[in-house]
Amino acid sequence: MEKILVGLKRVVDYNVRVRVRSDGSGVETDGVKMSINPFDEIALEEALRIKERGDAAEVIVVSIGNSDARQQLRTGLAMGADRAILVETDEETDPLSSARVLLEIVNREHPGLVLLGKQAIDNDNNQTGQMLAALWGRPQATFASELVLDGNLAKVTREIDVGLESIEVDLPAVVTTDLRLNEPRYVKLPDIMKAKKKPLEQIPLAELNIEASARISEIAFALPEQRQKGIMVDDVAGLVAALQDKGLL
């Protein structure tokens, strides 16, 4: 195929323990380390491997976000993507709008495959890929742990609750990644320098004429109920006694 499109969302790094602002107005993101959504890094790694096998000519990374997301796109370019597109907006888009934006990019670029993460680890929505596939009228293969291309087909192994499911989809299609699909490569310093010369196109969201969608409004943020530290026992006998105490044995 000619092109693979990969979505990269800028999110709070997965190692950061987020804090809810004391007034409940949101989650503190000021001064917090931001990264590519880990599932998206896996999506990009998969796209690069497909290209390196000779099954695709170009890998395009796209992010919808404010200008800070250029950082994550540059990292994607350093990993090996050929060019980047930033759809610029100061307000975070809802999943349906993100899917509509991605569809617009799809209609411009005509990729043979769109690789997205299965979920963004900020909102944990797990929606955008399925929505894009629906709007595009194309197949979706979510939670992929193996992807094999075969001409105009993709065979995908999906991680589902009861085990591993294999499906076959016609291309073009949307595939969303699970963690075991691959292990993303590290970015090397010379590649970061080289990436500065790769094209990064910026398109204001307003230019795309995306149909407006009704958002789900976020009214208040709170901490989850915290579990308390319990008791420590010294040995197996102590553990058995404690379990019996609670009526669990």
Binding site: N126, A133, T142, F143
Partner: peptide
């Protein structure tokens, strides 16, 4: 919100033209 529902429901939501509330 099992893998069955996570896979299916956003596709339904998009066809209905609405966002989804997950989980």
């Amino acid at each position: 919100s099992t893998t069955f529902g996570k896979d299916l429901m956003p596709r339904v939501a998009a066809l209905l033209g609405v966002n989804q509330i997950s989980d």
